[in-house]
């Protein structure tokens, strides 16, 4: 029966000791421990937040870099394309010019050749005419002695001229 009846002396001691223990622990143990734990948790959460933020920043930075790189690449392609076009244009130009020049040269050469040819022909005709005259003179001088001979020669000469 006295197992379940409280004992006054023990109650007094319990009250005293427990209240003192509670006071001492609250002041000198729980406060610093909980403070330290809270501070550390705060630190950790801050660090995590910072890491998250940095990650996002890094991503933004990376995206920016990618953008810049892409732009640079596009620009490079553009420049290359332009350069190629320019080069092609120059080559085409050069080709065209060269062709023109060549054509001009060929034309002028032909003109010269033609004029030379005409000149040569004229000279040849003159020469032939003078030669024919000379021949005719010689023939006339030599062959006028006989009629037949005169005639045969004239025919022969005339045939030779025509062949020429």
């Amino acid at each position: 029966m006295d197992l379940i009846l409280p004992d006054f002396g023990l109650l007094v001691w319990t009250g005293l000791v427990f209240c003192l223990l509670m006071f001492l622990l609250a002041k000198f143990a729980w406060k610093p421990i909980l403070n330290a734990v809270n501070t550390r948790e705060q630190k950790i959460s801050e660090a995590l937040e910072l890491a998250e933020k940095t990650k996002i920043e890094m991503q933004a930075l990376k995206a920016e870099n990618d953008q810049i790189l892409k732009e640079a690449r596009a620009e490079r392609d553009q420049i290359l394309k332009e350069a190629k076009e320019a080069a092609n244009g120059m080559v085409e130009d050069a080709k065209g010019k060269a062709k023109d020049e060549a054509a001009k040269i060929v034309e002028s050469a032909r003109l010269t050749i033609n004029s030379e040819k005409a000149a040569a022909m004229a000279e040849l005709k003159n020469h032939v005419a003078s030669l024919s005259l000379e021949i005719a003179e010689k023939v006339v001088r030599q062959e006028l002695t006989s009629d037949d001979k005169q005639k045969a020669l004239a025919t022969q000469l005339a045939g030779e001229i025509k062949m020429n």
């Binding site: 001691w13 000791v17 223990l21 000198f28 143990a29 729980w30 421990i33 734990v37």
Partner: peptide, 25 residues
């Protein structure tokens, strides 16, 4: 009761002392 309370006090003050000395590590 006295012994147990003393033990708790010693243990907890040791723990508190650790944090006091080393900070929030």
């Amino acid at each position: 009761l006295l012994f147990g309370s003393f033990l708790i006090l010693i243990i907890m003050l040791t723990v508190a002392g650790f944090y006091r000395k080393n900070g929030a590590v």
